[in-house]
Amino acid sequence: MKNKIRVLIAKPGLDGHDRGAKVVAKALRDAGMEVIYTGLRQTPEQIVKTAIQEDVDLIGLSILSGAHMNICPKLLELMKENDIENIPVFVGGIVPPDDAEELKRMGIKEVFGPGTPLSTIVEKIRQLFSEVES
């Protein structure tokens, strides 16, 4: 039995707007989760290594730069190479609806756009966690 959800919140890409990532990280913290926050400008390689060392249950990416269609496939591929593709990945940020669909087809579990209530995010993450656990 695991008693705590461990989530990695990372911000890949080159833009410097990390407020969203921080708001989500704080919401997850307040929901009783352990949030490993690695902040700005993370490469997919760094995210994968961190996820392995920290043995996280989920990975959350904040992307506002528009680079999601480059970063996400790269990350998913690296996760597969490292045999951690079972860890659910969710994305938050500015992602056009068509891209969001495409990302989900690739294997991203959820895309949270602007204005998503924090309670929705928390709920969804709990749900993703229990799916993996069972």
Partner: peptide, 25 residues
């Protein structure tokens, strides 16, 4: 709440890709 914000690792970014370093929060 039992939750935590683990933010020490962010200062150690330079070592994320180094196989000789293991960081656990």
């Amino acid at each position: 709440t039992g939750g935590s914000f683990l933010g020490d690792r962010i200062r150690m970014k330079t070592h994320f890709l180094d196989d000789g370093v293991f960081i656990r929060s």
